[in-house]
Amino acid sequence: MNETKPFIQMQNVEKYYGQFQALKAINLEVNRGEKIVICGPSGSGKSTLIRCINRLEEHDGGKIIIDGTELTDQIKDINAVRREVGMVFQSFNLFPHMTILKNLMLAQGLVRKTPKAEARKVAMQYLERVKIPEQADKYPVQLSGGQQQRVAIARALCMKPKVMLFDEPTSALDPEMINEVLDVMTDLAKEGMTMICVTHEMGFARSVADRVIFMDQGEIVETATPKDFFENPDSDRLKLFMKQILTH
């Protein structure tokens, strides 16, 4: 819509669960093509933050503007925003009762109104891209975790989103499957996709991210380029966190 403004703007965003404040005065702008990695200890609000971007969680204060559309209680068509924002979950969340191909075709037909033949073509094209076209007619349960997550990425891409959110996409995977998923994400980043990834894969953060954000207790504590982030962490909390995740 507006090419010069940041694609995502979050201004003083607050989120409460009852008495507990999950997000405190979050300010974040993400430009088109930017790759952001968010890390931090569990319970720091990382997931809550990206789930606010497609309104899976409703924020309680501040403003969130996606491509010029502000997310409010009065928003008429949240689905118009959601179809531009792809999301990949920790637990894959493939529809278990549909084949892989149907998983990729469903929302294309229902939301984008893509004709069946075209949807099938798009689905196969993205299955090729995540390198598992031969699994098209299987059910999710028959695939390995890594394969399922690649399907989930393909499913989100079928909607031709303008930004992709990744919520700990490799946290539920066995170690030997993590790389196949990170490879797909790295390819996607190279193609210029706007990405926000919550992950603890520091190798990925270092090689792909334009900015790395460290969150703790609902706040953005530090934002830096990967180089500064890993080599000259500013805050004590980040230093402690780095020490903890790099000890072993």
Binding site: N54, L56, N79, A80, R82, R83, V85, G86, M87, F89, S91, N93, L94, F95, P96, L106, A107, L110, V111, A152, R155, A156, M159
Partner: peptide, 16 residues
Amino acid sequence: QGLLEAASALGMSKPQ
């Protein structure tokens, strides 16, 4: 619930 969230994230409406 994750399945319904995934469907929401794809832009599917409540009836869908």
